[in-house]
Design a protein around this nucleic acid. Sequence first.
DNA 1: TACTACGTGTGATTTATCTCACAATAATTC
DNA 2: GAATTATTGTGAGATAAATCACACGTAGTA
Lengths: 251, 251
Amino acid sequence: MAVNQMELAAMTKSSSLTEKYGICKFISEDNNRRLNSIMYPKKFAADSYLFWDGDETEYLYYVLTGRVKLVKSTEEGKDMVMSILQKGDLIMEMDGFQVSLHNFSAVVIEDAEIGVIQKKDLELLLQRHGDFALEFMSWMGLMHRITQSKFRDLLMYGKPGALSSTLIRMCNSFGVACEAGIRLNIKLTNTELAEIIGATRESVNRMLSELKAEGTITVKNGQIIVQRLSNLKEKCNCPTFPVCPLEICRM
Amino acid sequence: MAVNQMELAAMTKSSSLTEKYGICKFISEDNNRRLNSIMYPKKFAADSYLFWDGDETEYLYYVLTGRVKLVKSTEEGKDMVMSILQKGDLIMEMDGFQVSLHNFSAVVIEDAEIGVIQKKDLELLLQRHGDFALEFMSWMGLMHRITQSKFRDLLMYGKPGALSSTLIRMCNSFGVACEAGIRLNIKLTNTELAEIIGATRESVNRMLSELKAEGTITVKNGQIIVQRLSNLKEKCNCPTFPVCPLEICRM
DNA sequence: TACTACGTGTGATTTATCTCACAATAATTC
DNA sequence: GAATTATTGTGAGATAAATCACACGTAGTA
């Protein structure tokens, strides 16, 4: 089939990689319990905001269900989507634990249940439990690397490369294996895709048409199915050897 | 004069902002001492490598003198400069403290003295001293924010915007106030600038010519002097209010 | 049904950026 | 200081991507 064995092996039918690579995977059972103990669940409807650009960074947000996008808007109303987060992801933006302000907004894109964490509470936990702090740093480091690799891809191979890189990452974050290939289990408009890669809706539309024509992707029920991942990898010079670590290749 | 009072106030004659915002400023005196105690100074000549893309992340590197650039190279030989670091900056790339590999290379661009730190040693320190771990996380968070804001600027306002953003950051990282404006106390070729913003040498050259023609910058002894910072700010939509925090606006 | 709102698809045109080619200046080396 | 090598500057043309303009679909709903 279009998807090779390794690719299939990398994902299960029911769960995407993000669940495998959420922060909980970086933290011991004890510390997961501790983290849970300072978390206050709260429901957020689609289109609501967890926080706004410029708000004080008082809380952290642990995504239990649903999806959240991190958006930076310019004064002229142009938006840029920096990341899309889901179950298992922790949203935290702070240069440490002093007072600071958010540099982007967090918008719920699918009804979400969020574990809200008070900065102060986390601080106490981290200070008290050295092993937790180390695990937490581990995760912070990973998040930073994801950001770096993401933006590198967006800058280096033109818009088609940027789109391809994004689709590959989406395979890892939202992908579900199906007969035809890897289905991206998320609804995104062309406009949203454009905001992720810093291009226009029209450009994205044309690029997607081309990918369809090549047989690289297909669309069913408004969801993209990646049929030939290798085509995408070529377009963004995704290295075959040494492969870049899978936990970095995500949204 | 071309540089206004606030801009002048933001820098001293002798030192650039990086010294003010190096990791030492995030860490208490005690913890600075601790960090120093596990540091082994070593000299690196210009053009030598601290580490290569793909090496194991065994050490951290604290820049005492000189300058180091972080570079990602593609298979076709295209380079991208992700960052330029100097006195007070700590180079660390690790998704935590398990075994992992560098995702880019660190190239010395000016003869440097580097405090080499063993990952294991740092780990012990952080585990033992909760306050140190918190301070360290604070710094990690800031580094991540710098990366985010940097790449956002590089993507959103075209190449002229990318160049302007970079020049502004360089004012903060390498700038020294002088009669004519802010002198960037670093030697960079057009090619290097191009590698920072993901453009071609020729484009950079033309853009610099234009900035000169406008009176925004001037060049003396191979160093750029920024005469009208406000012109640069316009080109990359650098917000006037709320101003973005100065510690994020750096290379 | 048919209306409305939102999203998609596509041509034509303009603008931004890269590519290639080569001349003109530094900067280094012998 | 002549020769060599790196860097800058610039034109002309090719490509990539944005912009503008509008037709077409589709889903929700009155």
